[in-house]
Amino acid sequence: MQTVKKWHLIHILSDLPLAGKAPQRGNTYDGPVPDEANQPRFLTLAQVADELNVKQSLVQRLIRTVELRAFQVGGRGMWRIGRQDVEDYITQAYQRTAERIAAGDFDDGAESEDQE
């Protein structure tokens, strides 16, 4: 990641399609900008688990149940998952969640702290 100044960010954003809207003058951001050109095309099981903030065994289960596309490479059968496949999985997970919430099925998964 690189840190850019506001004038550089406006130049970068002007080249990106933002739903037909160009950045307005005065919008600033002095934080890090991801450098997608340097991102690997394929990820390991451990990298996907880290990206999703889950255990590697859950990623393996998602692959076994064909919820997440993956393939094996090399003589040792190392698993690789395409970066776009991870993004597609996340998009589908958001869609499934929205449908469940709309249907009235909202379970917070007991992640909240104990309330008294």
Rank of each mutant, 00 (worst) to 15 (best):
Q2A: 15
T3V: 15
T3S: 15
V4W: 06
K5V: 15
K5L: 14
K6A: 15
W7V: 13
H8M: 15
I10L: 11
L13Y: 05
S14C: 10
D15W: 11
L18W: 13
L18V: 09
G20T: 08
Q24F: 06
Q24R: 13
Q24W: 07
N27R: 12
N27I: 09
N27A: 11
Y29C: 04
Y29Q: 01
D30Y: 13
P32D: 08
V33C: 02
V33S: 02
V33W: 07
P34K: 06
E36D: 12
E36T: 09
A37N: 10
A37Q: 07
A37M: 03
N38F: 01
P40C: 03
R41I: 05
F42P: 00
T44E: 07
T44G: 02
T44W: 03
Q47D: 15
Q47C: 02
Q47E: 15
Q47T: 12
V48L: 08
N53C: 13
N53H: 10
V54S: 07
K55G: 11
Q56T: 10
S57P: 04
L58Q: 03
L58F: 10
V59A: 02
Q60A: 13
Q60G: 09
R61S: 14
R61T: 14
E67T: 11
R69K: 14
R69M: 01
R69D: 01
A70W: 00
A70D: 08
F71G: 12
Q72P: 07
Q72E: 14
Q72W: 01
R76I: 06
R76D: 04
G77D: 01
I81C: 05
I81A: 05
I81R: 00
G82F: 01
Q84E: 08
Q84I: 06
Q84P: 03
Q84G: 01
Q84A: 04
V86M: 00
T91Y: 02
Q92I: 03
Q95L: 11
Q95E: 02
A98Q: 11
E99N: 04
I101P: 00
A102I: 09
A103Y: 01
G104W: 03
D105K: 09
F106V: 09
D108F: 08
G109M: 06
G109H: 08
G109K: 01
G109T: 07
A110H: 09
A110T: 04
A110D: 10
E111W: 14
E111Q: 13
S112I: 04
